[in-house]
């Protein structure tokens, strides 16, 4: 179980890092959504740090590789979608390794990532804005 949650913590660190440059290139409702998303990932990170204390926490890196340079609004939206999809995949994997309260937390995290990815696709005017199996790699 610890391995999946450790992977989730690393993904949350990376998501928090990514929303810094993403937010810089957005305005209005999109910037508000970026702030809310970053806050959600910080909450998930904090919960994981508590859950994993004593199990060998992975440290946050100074920087994370983004899927592409965030140079404008369009790139910011693409990276935001990618961040949420990748983080959803990690939480989906955690479902099979958890029970009870930790499974509920993993499911809430997966659902949050999936809903945020949907909102980012709407902002980016990607059609359709939903996917059949959030967190699952495309076939």
């Amino acid at each position: 179980m610890t391995g999946e949650l450790t992977a989730a913590l690393s993904a949350e660190y990376a998501a928090i890092f990514a929303y810094g440059p993403i937010g810089v290139h957005l305005t209005g409702a999109e910037q508000s959504a970026a702030r809310a998303a970053e806050a959600a990932h910080r909450t998930l990170r904090d919960a994981l740090v508590l859950a994993l204390t004593g199990s060998g926490l992975p440290p946050a890196a100074a920087a994370y590789r983004l899927p592409e340079p965030v140079v404008d609004r369009a790139a910011a939206l693409r990276v935001a979608i990618s961040v949420e999809e990748k983080t959803a995949a990690v939480w989906r994997a955690a479902l099979s390794a958890t029970v009870d309260t930790q499974r509920r937390q993993a499911l809430e995290a997966l659902t949050g990532c999936a809903v945020r990815a949907t909102r980012w696709r709407r902002f980016a005017k990607i059609d359709p804005i939903t996917v059949a199996f959030p967190g699952k790699a495309p076939a």
């Binding site: 989906r92 479902l95 997966l110 939903t130 199996f133 959030p134 967190g135 699952k136």
Partner: peptide, 11 residues
């Protein structure tokens, strides 16, 4: 079964 069912819930 948890990953599939969770993914359906999220969808």
């Amino acid at each position: 079964r948890a990953a599939l069912v969770g993914s359906i819930a999220a969808a």
